[in-house]
């Protein structure tokens, strides 16, 4: 008798849970069994049913036997279409493939595999998230790769929002759909700071006689180009980018002091910078150092990576930067 709004809500959420059985992120291949495929008429489906009432009324009024035949044919075709739509989606195999790491501020791409292990074609299968949608046909016994994108706003792990797999084929009278949240996290690196920040000075006495560059001095970072700079010192690798983006041309900046390695240290950055700014700057330096094929070390408080160079060093540094302070 005293059913409060809260208890009503609870009951309905029980119903909701019972119908849709929310699952959360799922690993591995998913099989759309009958319990996962829902079906409901579309707007056009309702309109179609309503117009059939008009057909029926005309048939009765004008005593058109063949009008009845037509009306019942269309009504029965609607029921048959329900089975076709349901079957179009039923027993589809869904598999997360990969999501390549991206920098914050760009689009993350999630590669997914849809596999049809049946002898009939599945047409017009939609995959939708809040951010993106795509549609594909899958031939009998074939699989199709689809890519869904999502904006990578923040560094850390980006999970793809829940996907709605849906179809209205063949007649568009009904929509069948399934929910799928693949456990396919995408690593988002911090957004690299703009170019032009000076490399930090290498701590003294850390040098161990690393090979010296052509300038007989040690590389210490990049700064903006000035007219008096020797063309030899221009950072040509960055120059193309600089010309395209209109950013200042950079020159390699050399220190007289002998320092063989660069240490990129979170703690030595100016105290005015907050954590995200520091990580952003460090990301930029890691990319620059890698572009110049340097050996460098990254110090993130107690974590020290390197000194080393090359892809493995870059990737582990970027990963550490992406996940710094992120709960595992």
């Amino acid at each position: 008798m005293e059913a409060t709004t809260a208890s009503k809500l609870f009951r309905f959420s029980m119903i909701y849970n019972w119908i849709f059985q929310p699952r959360g992120p799922e690993t591995g291949e998913i099989f759309l069994h009958q319990r996962r495929v829902f079906i409901f008429p579309t707007r056009y489906g309702f309109f179609f049913a309503f117009s059939l009432l008009g057909f029926l009324a005309s048939s009765i009024n004008y005593d058109l036997s063949l009008g009845f035949v037509l009306t019942f044919f269309l009504g029965a075709a609607g029921l048959v279409a329900m089975l076709h739509t349901f079957r179009n989606q039923l027993h589809l195999y869904l598999k997360p493939l990969k999501a390549e790491p991206v920098f914050a501020g760009s689009e993350a791409s999630f590669d997914l595999l849809l596999e049809n292990r049946k002898g009939y074609e599945r047409a017009a299968i939609w995959l939708k998230t809040v951010d993106a949608e795509t549609v594909t046909d899958i031939a009998p016994y074939q699989s199709v790769n689809v890519t869904l994108t999502a904006p990578a706003v923040k560094r850390g792990w980006l999970t793809l929002p829940r996907i709605t797999v849906e179809t209205r084929y063949p007649l568009g009278l009904l929509r069948s759909w399934s929910y799928w949240q693949p456990d396919l996290p995408c690593l988002v690196y911090p957004k690299p700071a703009p170019t032009g920040m000076r490399f930090p000075d290498a701590p003294e006495g850390s040098g161990e006689g690393a090979p010296t560059g052509p300038g007989a001095e040690d590389f210490a970072g990049l700064r903006e180009h000035q007219v008096t700079d020797s063309p030899r010192h221009i950072a040509w690798k960055n120059a193309i980018l600089a010309m395209e983006t209109g950013m200042p041309l950079l020159v390699k900046h050399f220190h007289g002091a002998a320092s063989s390695e660069v240490v990129l240290d979170y703690d030595t950055l100016p105290p005015a910078m907050d954590m995200e700014q520091r990580l952003s700057l460090l990301t930029r330096w890691v990319l620059d150092a890698d572009a110049l094929k340097f050996t460098y070390a990254l110090k993130l408080q107690e974590t020290v990576l390197g000194p080393a160079g090359g892809d493995p060093q870059r990737l582990s540094c970027l990963r550490a930067l992406a996940l710094f302070g992120v709960a595992p």
């Binding site: 009324a57 009765i60 009024n61 044919f73 009504g75 029965a76 279409a81």
Partner: peptide, 25 residues
């Protein structure tokens, strides 16, 4: 195929749908 599959249902509806003597209007 859709129309063919609809045929038996159409037949049942045709025979059994309660007929009202027209006209309605």
């Amino acid at each position: 195929v859709v129309i063919l599959q609809a045929f038996p249902m159409m037949l049942v509806l045709f025979v059994l749908f309660p007929r009202v003597p027209g006209p309605l209007w």
